[in-house]
Structure formats: C-alpha cells, structure tokens
C-alpha cells in the first residue's frame, strides 16, 4: 500500500504513525511512503553538499518480512536503474536505535560503491513493546540516491524538474536552499528557548493527560459495550501527535545548545515515557477492537459448558 507523508514534523520516517504504531500488535501490514525528516542539528546553512536539516526518506515497512526480503530490496535498486552487476554492494552491520521512541532493531547500512543508500532494520522492539511479528523496515535516503543516479557532487545540484518545453532546469537547490539556510539560522541561533520549553511542556502535559484518561478507562469495571466503544474512540492518535511535537521541540532545543548533556538524558526519558505509554495503550486499544468481544464470547461458552456438566452429574 502506498501512503502519503505524515504532516507533523518527525526526525525519521520511523516516527510517522504508519511505522511506529503499525508495527505494534499482530496485524500484518505492508506500506511505503515518502517522509520528510527534520533533524535541526544536522542543518548546515545550505553550505554542506551532503547534509540537510530536512531530507526525504522513502520508508518501506513489511510486517512480517517475507523470506526473500533482501532479494526484494536488491530488486528495488534494479527498478531504480541501478545495475548491481556494475557496482559494489555490501551489507554492513548497523543497528538502529531510537532512545526517544523506546525502539530498536538489528540490521545494516547498505553501501553502494561506498555510499550509504539504505538503512535496513529488523525491528525488535518499539515503544518498549517486544514485537511479534517482527517488521522489516527499509529506509532509502532519496537525496543521496538521486545524487548518485545523476552523478552530481552536491545534493543541491540534483535536477529536480525539467521544463518539457524549454528544457529549463530547476535544481534541488532552487527549491530547497533558502529553507535550509533559514531553518539553520532559526534552529541554531534564533529559536526562542524559553518559548520552546513552554511548548514542550504544554504538549507533554496534554499528552500525559490523555494517557491518564485512557488508563482510567482501562481500569473501569464495566464490561459492557459502552466501555468498549469509549476505548475505541479514545484519541490516542492525537496523543501520539503531541508526543511527536515534543520530540521535535527537543531536537530544536538540542540544536540550539539549550540542553546540557546531563539534562539531555532526562528529557529523552520524558519523551520516551510518552512514546512507551502510547504504544502500550495503542496495543490495548487494538486488542479491544478485535479480540475483546471474542474473549467475552468464549467466556460465555465456558460458563455454558460448566452448567451443562453440573446438570449431567
């Protein structure tokens, strides 16, 4: 299935709900989407030919991974016009970890003629939840692949569009350079630290409040249909958006140099607490959607059997 990019700032395609939430629980899922990924500390004022504040990832999630997933991946490079017989391809150990998401996996960086073009990960845990089944996540670095295919040294020299009538070229620099420069200035120099902290705290507080609301609902005794419905319509997805905002604000504060190394660990733990809380609640909510009804049915069958037995004896 193809999806659209998610429209909240994320540091990586993994953080979009299409990956973070979909890899949880037992439901098989296969999706691909392009995700703009914003990493304020990676900004280089548009001066570095290879690093960007915002870059594009093609994110592919295969849950569970097919047995020939690696071959499928290699075939995808062929589909992009890369003839592997002409190149040197290696899978080098690189295990991915996101402390803010409580997520990690095992995998490789895929090196094409020495260029890291893809992060290939078998997710093991997400939001602190052990995954079953496992998902394979393929993250393609689109700017790098485009620069490779077009044989240009700088990302900004990538031909982004060509006017079919005049052949006039619009480069990636034409469409992106100003953004890289201005966001670098903002993230490194001008972001209002105090206000960013306030935003962070507001988003964190609201996210926490929602999680507490869901926890209360889970403790409620009433096993009737009303509770199941309340759980199903409970806004966990908006809670996750708030968590993403916290993560992005943390990244801005970090780039701004406003978080000391000591504080850093603590703030990461705060964001992780939200992500973990959402993951657990989401798993519970999904179970409610599918199995809660079935298990109550099962319960009824059991009671019925007991009654029959007591009659016959």
């Amino acid at each position: 299935m193809l999806q659209q990019p998610y429209d909240v700032e994320v540091g990586a395609g993994t953080m979009a709900p299409e990956t973070f939430l979909r890899v949880l629980g037992p439901q098989p899922y296969r999706v691909a989407y392009v995700q703009p990924s914003r990493r304020p500390a990676d900004g280089r004022y548009g001066e570095n030919p290879n690093r960007l504040y915002k870059h594009l990832q093609l994110q592919v999630v295969l849950k569970p991974p097919p047995e020939n997933v690696q071959q499928l991946y290699l075939d995808s490079l062929g589909a992009m016009g890369i003839d592997l017989r002409q190149h040197d391809i290696k899978f080098e150990e690189d295990n991915w970890e996101s402390p803010t998401l409580g997520a990690w996996g095992i995998g490789w960086q895929v090196m094409l003629d020495g260029l890291e073009i893809t992060q290939f990960t078998y997710f093991q845990q997400c939001g602190g939840v052990d995954l079953d089944p496992i998902s394979a996540e393929l993250t393609y670095g689109l700017e790098r692949i485009a620069a490779f295919l077009q044989d240009v040294d700088s990302i900004y020299d990538i031909v982004w569009a060509r006017d079919p009538e005049t052949d006039r070229i619009t480069s990636y620099g034409d469409v992106r350079l100003a953004e890289e420069l201005q966001f670098s200035v903002y993230n490194f120099e001008q972001a209002d630290v105090e206000k960013a902290w306030k935003h962070f705290e507001l988003c964190e507080a609201e996210c926490k409040a929602l999680l507490e609301g869901y926890a209360l609902l889970s403790k409620a005794k009433d096993a009737g249909d009303g509770l199941a419905r309340d759980k199903r319509r409970f806004p966990l997805l908006p809670a996750y958006d708030l968590c993403l905002k916290c993560s992005h604000l943390f990244n801005i504060l970090d780039a701004r140099g406003a978080i000391s190394v000591t504080e850093r660990v603590g703030v990461i733990a705060r964001v992780r607490a939200l992500a973990v809380g959402i993951a657990k609640a989401y798993v519970d909510q999904q179970q409610g959607n599918t199995t809660a009804d079935e298990s109550s049915k099962e319960q009824k069958v059991l009671t019925a059997k007991k009654e029959t037995m007591s009659v016959s004896s």
């Binding site: 001066e47 002409q86 044989d151 040294d153």
Partner: peptide, 23 residues
C-alpha cells in the same frame, strides 16, 4: 571495475566525507 564506475562512486563519497571533516 572495468569502466571505473565503482572507483568514481567511492571517490565522490570520500570527497563528501572530507568536506564534512573540513567543515
């Protein structure tokens, strides 16, 4: 690497890496 394609790729990557280090 009969056509030098692979060497060319490695050279470009290293150039970028060195640019980074110089930055």
């Amino acid at each position: 690497d009969p056509k030098g394609i692979i060497r060319h790729g490695h050279e470009r990557v290293l150039r970028a890496r060195f640019n980074d280090a110089r930055f």
